[in-house]
């Protein structure tokens, strides 16, 4: 049994999964197609419902 984890896609969902797994002590490979992570959220100015800045 191998315990390393693969997360495909570095949007908010992939970022959160990766951080949770890493915090639990697992080695995580996070593969993102674009030059940087962030996904759609990185394009947003602010987010509902709090209107906090997206990045």
């Amino acid at each position: 049994m191998n315990k390393d984890m693969l997360v495909i896609g570095g949007g908010i969902a992939g970022i959160q999964s990766s951080l949770d797994l890493a915090e639990m002590g697992f080695k995580v490979y996070l593969v993102e197609r674009l030059p940087s992570i962030g996904g759609k959220m990185a394009q947003l100015d602010k987010t509902f419902p709090t209107n906090d800045c997206a990045i």
């Binding site: 570095g10 990766s18 951080l19 797994l21 890493a22 915090e23 002590g25 697992f26 080695k27 995580v28 490979y29 996070l30 593969v31 993102e32 197609r33 674009l34 030059p35 940087s36 992570i37």
Partner: peptide, 9 residues
């Protein structure tokens, strides 16, 4: 614990 592989598929 995270190995980031951006610009990858």
């Amino acid at each position: 614990n995270i190995e980031l592989m951006a610009y990858s598929e």
